[in-house]
């Protein structure tokens, strides 16, 4: 074996060892710690008790209630299967709106006098998510229109058989 081949194997071994270590670490991380807990995890009892954690999901349409005169706000986070009510006092990010993805940080408490579910999140931070789609307002508008039209057509003709060419 020439010295150059030996060095080649040395570099290969470094890369192999480090990527194997990183791979193990990542799979361990993936199964143990999720960055976001979703409302379904909460109702399945998988959310941490008495500890601050992050909850991710969509702000449910029509669920935002503002307290007049102060910055208190209440809304429902949904993952389209389960819901968690969130109470928060403070300034909201500009992208916060109904139907928007959010990540809230806070503690979970059990409450029976809620409109939806039994879980109340007392949040100390609300972050808004946005997606990677960038387009001018008029394009978004026309996209929405065609989407709505298509959806309407789909619902009106939903029982029709799908004909494949």
């Amino acid at each position: 074996m020439t010295p150059r081949q030996r060095r080649m194997i040395f570099v290969g071994l470094i890369l192999l060892a480090v990527s194997a270590a990183a791979g193990f670490l990542l799979t361990a991380l993936n199964s143990n710690v999720q960055y976001n807990i979703v409302p379904s995890d909460v109702s399945a009892g998988k959310a941490p008790k008495g500890r601050t954690f992050r909850l991710g999901g969509m702000v449910e349409q029509g669920s935002v209630k503002r307290e007049p005169g102060n910055l208190q706000i209440q809304f429902v986070i949904t993952d389209f299967a389960h819901e968690v009510t969130v109470r928060y006092t403070g300034v909201l990010p500009d992208l916060f709106r109904e139907g928007q993805g959010v990540v809230v940080r806070g503690k979970l408490v059990y409450s029976t006098d809620l409109e939806k579910g039994q879980w109340l999140m007392l949040a100390d931070e609300v972050l808004a998510k946005h997606d990677e789609n960038y387009m001018p307002p008029n394009v978004a508008e026309s996209l929405k229109k065609t989407h709505d039209v298509r959806r309407m057509q789909e619902t009106s003709t939903s029982p029709a058989p799908v004909i494949t060419p």
């Binding site: 993936n30 960055y35 991710g56 998510k129 946005h130 997606d131 789609n133 960038y134 387009m135 001018p136």
Partner: peptide, 24 residues
């Protein structure tokens, strides 16, 4: 891609369709 995180996905794509409007 691996984690459902706060940061949005990639915008530019060499092989596929970019998620930014052609005008931008």
């Amino acid at each position: 891609v691996w984690w459902n995180s706060l940061h949005q996905g990639k915008t530019l794509s060499i092989w596929g369709k970019s998620s930014i409007d052609p005008s931008m």
